[in-house]
Amino acid sequence: MATHRVALPSGEEFSVAPGERILAAARRAGVWLPFECGWGSCGTCKATLVEGEVELLFPEAPAIKPRDARRRRILTCQTTPITDVVLKPTTVSSSPPEPLAVEDRVGTVVANLDLGPGLRRLEVELDRPVRYRAGQYAIVEPAPGLRRCYSMATPPGSGVAEIAFVYRRYPGRPGSSALWALRPGDPLPLELPYGAMWIRDDEPTGVVLVAGGTGVSPILAMVGDLAARGVTGTVHVVYGARRVEELVCADDLVEGLAALPRGRITLVVEDPPPGWSGPVGTVVDALEPDPDLRYYVAGPPPMVDAVLAHLDDGGVGLDRIAYDSFG
């Protein structure tokens, strides 16, 4: 195994260590190639392999399409070179795109607190403040080679040194199990920020924030951010889970929304306890599409897909929706 060189037609060159991802190696060399999600979901980082050979590190990446091989398109975020290569990206920059100034950090676990059944809040301290937008996420590496996306639950302010993630343990799945096993004092390597689901500064008429399960994590950051900025438009949170015990951090949302003149929350559960007076079902059942509002949607993929279909039926265009689906 040797270090390989990557050359771009625009003249830039950088080295990639054995097993290192091309996108990360470029960033570490100050060469910013296109990207957005950082893990192989969106396809924004695809580039054309002009010369050389590469190894794909995550063959299950959702963004990989059958026609990629024919067009020699590779996901730079999940590919490492095995020879020197020449690569043609769509753009190259010497500075990061504004909300995606990704940094490598090593945090220290402060707490890993139980919130509900199979649900925890992981608190991580950084050696110095980090900047991100409310709604963005980090790629954490709780064990070597296990890279997973978790959205910050903490509002970013103008830079924070302590961040937190609300997450679920999926038994038998190594990423969340490794996170669950972290103890105070453990180091946690992370890269951040990633993602396009972040609150804009100029929300015109109002926003609807839709959270399914641990999708509440970025929604907590968004509500905190909007409350800190004192926005005057509609801020409607729709938060759903299977059972009431899983609607964790709802009190934090209620508190944040209480500070806003047009803040409100709808909680929805599929399996209601006796005496439940709220809506029953999924977030889709509690969501009235309004084409004048902007939508931010976070949750597991089936829930996000259902919300997108529901919003489409209700006449809300994709230019008014941002979403992240993990889990």
Partner: peptide, 30 residues
């Protein structure tokens, strides 16, 4: 060749030849 939204290459997207609909891989614009 690039999506009007965020300049993602449209040829990286998904396509249904029967309906002639293309979905951009970036954010599912149709």
């Amino acid at each position: 060749g690039v999506c009007p939204h965020q300049e993602v290459m449209l040829a990286d997207g998904d396509w249904d030849e029967e309906s002639s609909v293309l979905w951009c891989g970036g954010h599912r614009w149709e």
